[in-house]
């Protein structure tokens, strides 16, 4: 059984907004035929809540809004491209096309380093060998008993 309170609630919501099913709509219509109080309420609701929104109240979007949006998107895309190109440039320094000269330079540097190091080591070994040889000579020669003196030395001595 529909009370006037329920009918009014439905008038303000589902009935006004066409959200009720056919049978409920028929029940409400039937109630309105028999209840003058609810009929007046429905008329007031229609006049004050529905009619004001039935005119042309939607406005067209100004043209310049899309231009601004488009400009913002393009600016953002450009900024993004610039930051990406900076990173790409940095990466390209080490990228494949320049790998061969870079590797060549590295090999040359490596060879030069090896050569310098080797030369230094050879020099060190030679000096060491020379020292050891002289030291061995020094130890093997018996200056007291050996006859290493020349005739001139003999003369003076």
């Amino acid at each position: 059984m529909n009370t006037c309170k329920n009918i009014k609630d439905l008038i303000l919501t589902d009935y006004m907004d066409s959200e009720v099913d056919l049978s409920t709509r028929e029940q409400i219509s039937s109630h309105l035929l028999n209840c003058s109080h609810c009929r007046r309420f429905a008329a007031e609701a229609e006049k004050n809540l529905a009619v004001p929104f039935k005119g042309k109240i939607r406005e067209d979007v100004p043209e310049h809004v899309w231009s601004s949006i488009r400009q913002s998107i393009e600016n953002a895309a450009m900024a993004n491209t610039q930051s990406k190109s900076f990173i790409n440039n940095f990466i390209q320094i080490f990228s494949f096309p320049k790998l061969a000269p870079a590797l060549g330079g590295f090999v040359v540097l490596l060879l030069m380093g090896t050569f310098i190091l080797n030369s230094h080591q050879i020099k060190q070994v030679k000096e060491k060998e020379q020292g050891e040889y002289l030291a061995s000579l020094w130890k093997t020669v018996d200056f007291e008993n050996s006859d290493l003196r020349t005739p001139i030395e003999e003369y003076f001595l």
Binding site: E59, D60, V61, P62, V65, W66, S68, I69, S72
Partner: peptide, 28 residues
């Protein structure tokens, strides 16, 4: 979609400049 966005913003903000700003923000 812009008609919906702009008109909802316009009725909520009750100001055209604000509605335009909201429309831009929504689409961005």
């Amino acid at each position: 979609m812009s008609g919906f966005v702009y008109n909802v913003a316009l009725r909520i903000m009750n100001n055209r400049e604000d509605a335009e700003e909201v429309t831009q923000e929504v689409f961005l």
